[in-house]
Nucleic acid binder design. Structure first.
Lengths: 207, 207
DNA sequence: CTATTTCTTGAACGGTGTTCATTTTTATCT
DNA sequence: AGATAAAAATGAACACCGTTCAAGAAATAG
């Protein structure tokens, strides 16, 4: 049996990711410690560095899993919210807020984690984020048929970032953030304002 | 002379804040080290802890200074952008983007820094953030005279957070962020969309 | 069963923020 | 001014962190 090696290696990686996910969910990204995670995964301290290059890379794998679940939630909301583009955007915004609230620490880890100075995010993980923008392209292109593909992608990033900013400041508990009790309502109001502004603005943009 | 003690103490605090500001500006908030900052301030390692409770508290003082400068920039933009509320909001958004770009690391430090689990931000520093919302109340109340004061404050926080999100993801260099080259244009487009949506939405909100 | 290769282990390393006994400086009192 | 008391500055020492690597354990091949 020559594949026991690879199987054990994969199992170790899996156990480490699971343990890291649990640690981050419970203590935040700053509470992820190499010793705690290896103990919980049932391996030696050094084993972490045979499975992953780095603690940072382990975090990236946790984030990849979180993004996968978040992507599913958004796609599901996009499927259910079939009607006007405005309804689709509202459904996805709601799903985004719900996911962030239900997976607070893991969601925050997606955007709080920073690689050390000079280290670039690996390409495989960059692509994991793409879904956050892709789901917006459809409804946005209906709302703004005047925009070219390039401008549409930019506007999708901007739209995502706007909603994201409201959720982030709220969940981080920042002083300037919206209180959690009003988060759903305020995000809904923002999306409504943005869709209305787009509908009306569409004609004038060409000047 | 009995005030030499307090003068020296104040001078030490000032030197430490200045050194910390320089370190953060050059190496980011993660590059702020107690030994480097005390060396640059010309004092012993332990002196830091006679002047401030903590490295975190030193960072809060740096952030307070940054917020003061940012507040001035926003107020100045509000004063110059006298015309329609839409113009005022555009002027302040532009000033916000300009400030963030010109003070990248210090601005990022405002929102990336997190206190350890369980430690609450002191009240004096919470109030330092208030200006970010206050400058929006005026133009927003003109744009939405239908909203009560309470709802207006909420909407101001949401509006700020939306613009903030776009700037943050861009300056952090996140994959889903808007490229820096398009940041000004996209923020301007977002503010325009939001103001148009508000003007049009104002009547319908009561249902 | 032995020899060889491969992987796993955890003590050790360098670097971090923070503390505290010691020294040095400052203020007070005759 | 000099002696004494109070206060503050100092930096070695501590606890904890991520990461490495010589040594041991395990798996594979002969």
């Amino acid at each position: 049996m020559g594949n026991t090696r690879d199987e054990k290696r994969a199992a170790l990686r899996s156990r480490l990711i699971e343990a890291a996910e649990d640690q981050i969910a419970r203590h935040g990204i700053g509470g992820l410690k190499a010793r705690a995670v290896t103990t919980q995964a049932g391996c030696a301290l050094g084993a972490l560095y045979t499975a992953f290059e780095d603690l940072d890379m382990l975090i990236l794998h946790v984030n990849a899993r979180t993004l996968e679940r978040l992507g599913s939630a958004l796609k599901s909301a996009l499927g259910e919210g079939q009607g006007t583009p405005a309804q689709a955007l509202q459904a996805m915004a709601r799903a985004y807020v719900d996911f962030a609230c239900a997976n607070r620490a893991l969601w925050i880890a997606l955007f709080e984690h920073r690689l050390p100075e000079g280290v670039e995010t690996p390409d495989w993980h960059k692509q994991d984020h793409a879904v956050l923008i892709e789901v917006l392209i459809g409804p946005l292109s209906q709302l703004r048929p005047d925009l070219a593909q390039e401008a549409l992608v930019l506007r999708a990033r901007t739209t995502f970032a706007a909603v994201h900013g409201v959720v982030l400041l709220a969940l981080q508990g920042r002083f300037v953030g919206v209180p959690m009790a009003q988060l759903h309502a305020e995000v809904a109001a923002l999306v409504e304002t943005m869709t209305r502004g787009s509908e009306r603005g569409q004609a004038e943009t060409a000047r």
